[in-house]
């Protein structure tokens, strides 16, 4: 579990992280989104006790990041922005080195390393120098390093950015299985589709401050307003529409489609369908228009004043 209270970090006059309040439970994935320089990496470094906060507090896996930095580091697996690999070592040697640093020595370390190499499809390349690895293989190796000691908390910075779709899928599946195994995961990413599919909650950070922190759906609702619905007609319809329920607003209309905004879809949609059917309007489909997280994110970036949302 991760919890922060007013977590802040300043480098001289520059405030990199400003009063961040977060809570990520076990078995939850939080996607931390934000433009470059927003404070994502600094937040991750604060949560790994590599940086000391200038204000506020944070607990990771139950340990205070200032009071117990060693315990925090021992309970966190981190995939850093720079993968931090040693080009002259083989993948196996590299993992065994970190396994030893994390206390996995002897046969335990070997078994764990080989199991993970197998899981991530790196077993065949285990004895090759890392310098010969492709970008994607390097990223997988760095991820394996983060998972070596089965940490209860994972901080993953762009885990699939350099991977082909097949490998990205393996990583996403791994993240899902880790969530199911009650690991706490913070995902820093610019891949909004990935964030949407993996994260239980999205936190948008800008200039060191958390602007929004909620479920993807609630975030879209908050930033993009109530959802839009589309009615597709089986044939062009130019007749007038019957009187619609009061919270239905027609946003736009074409010859064979209508876009509607509905105040309370749960209550109104059955009524609306009944009204339209009764009026013999040739309905083909009735569906919610998909709204991407990207739209919501871009809207968030235009918010003038930070409107912190717990």
């Amino acid at each position: 579990m991760i919890q922060t209270e007013d977590l802040s970090k300043a480098f001289g006059d520059f405030i990199a992280v400003d009063g961040v309040n977060l809570r990520v439970e076990a078995g939850e994935v939080l996607a931390l989104l934000g433009p470059n320089g927003a404070g994502k990496t600094t937040t991750v470094r604060l949560l790994t006790s590599v940086l000391r906060p200038t204000r506020g507090r944070a607990w990771v896996a139950g340990f205070d990041v200032v009071q117990h930095p060693q315990k925090v580091r021992a309970h966190v697996g981190v995939l850093t922005e720079h993968h931090g690999l040693y080009a002259r070592m083989s993948g196996e040697e590299y993992l065994l080195f970190f396994a030893e640093l994390y206390g996995l020595r002897g046969e335990d370390g070997h078994q764990r390393v080989h199991a993970l190499l197998e899981q991530f499809g790196l077993a065949a390349a285990a004895r090759r120098r890392i310098g010969e690895y492709s970008k994607g293989m390097r990223q997988k190796l760095a991820l394996v390093r983060a998972l070596l000691h089965s940490p209860p908390v994972l901080l993953l910075d762009e885990p699939t950015s350099a991977m082909d779709p097949e490998n990205a899928r393996i990583v996403r599946e791994t993240i899902r299985s880790l969530r199911a195994a009650q690991h706490t995961i913070v995902l820093c990413t610019h891949n909004l589709t990935e964030a949407e599919t993996l994260a239980d909650r999205i936190a948008i950070i800008r200039r060191g401050r958390i602007l929004f922190n909620d479920t993807p759906e609630a975030l879209k609702h908050h930033l993009l307003g109530t959802p839009l619905y589309e009615i597709r007609l089986a044939q062009p319809w130019d007749g007038s529409l019957p009187p619609l329920p009061s919270d239905v607003e027609i946003v736009d209309r074409g010859s064979d489609w209508i876009h509607l905004r509905i105040g309370d879809p749960h209550q109104t949609n059955p009524l609306l369908l009944g009204v339209l059917t009764a009026a013999n309007i040739p309905l083909l489909t009735f569906s919610e228009l998909p709204r991407s997280l990207e739209e919501a994110y871009l809207r968030a970036m235009t918010v003038e004043e930070p409107n912190a949302m717990a």
Binding site: T48, Q70, A74, V78, T80, H83, G84, Y86, F98, G103
Partner: peptide
């Protein structure tokens, strides 16, 4: 860029 994983390891 290889220092950060080392700094994040549980070492004094």
């Amino acid at each position: 860029g290889s220092i950060e994983p080392l700094l994040s390891a549980p070492l004094e």
